[in-house]
């Protein structure tokens, strides 16, 4: 389960919209307990691939995030990126290149309105969707 506030969700979607026509991307920082995580910060990255079909996180953004995780009580929880014309589901490229089975992979689909945000665990080629919960909601998931 991924806990993501509506404010941070909006920040993530805004990052993806600003990146258009390219895919937008960034990192999720926060805390985790077992398979569950709480996102406390969205770190936007330039898409170094400058493409509407692929993304790559800026290596300097990545290094800064991991350095902070060494020094502060936060973790690099995972990554988000947008699909501009396809559903919020990991592509074969996303699955093949998923760097860490412990990470949370958030997909933002800008294909339709309202924008769709979903989160997945990707391990050994298997994709498993997880719940995304807004902490300000008592029950249910985050609905944009």
């Amino acid at each position: 389960m991924l806990t993501l506030s509506n404010d941070l969700r909006d920040t993530m979607v805004a990052t993806c919209i600003r990146a258009l026509p390219d895919e937008g991307c960034g990192l999720l920082l926060g805390t985790s307990e077992g398979p569950d995580a709480v996102v406390t910060e969205i770190v936007a990255s330039e898409n170094m691939a400058h493409s509407a079909k692929v993304y790559e996180i800026d290596s300097r953004v990545l290094l800064r995030a991991f350095r902070r995780a060494d020094d502060e009580p936060i973790e690099v929880l995972g990554v988000f990126h947008s699909h501009t014309h396809s559903p919020a589901y990991p592509s074969p490229t996303d699955v093949k290149q998923a760097p860490d089975p412990a990470w949370h992979y958030v997909l933002v689909s800008l294909r339709d309105l309202p924008t769709v945000v979903k989160s997945y665990k990707i391990a050994n080629g298997d994709v498993l969707e997880e719940d995304v919960i807004d902490p300000t909601n008592d029950v249910g998931g985050a609905h944009g």
Partner: peptide
Amino acid sequence: ITLLPAVAGGAA
């Protein structure tokens, strides 16, 4: 020296 996995993917 720091090693980190590149983080990349996409709809392609």
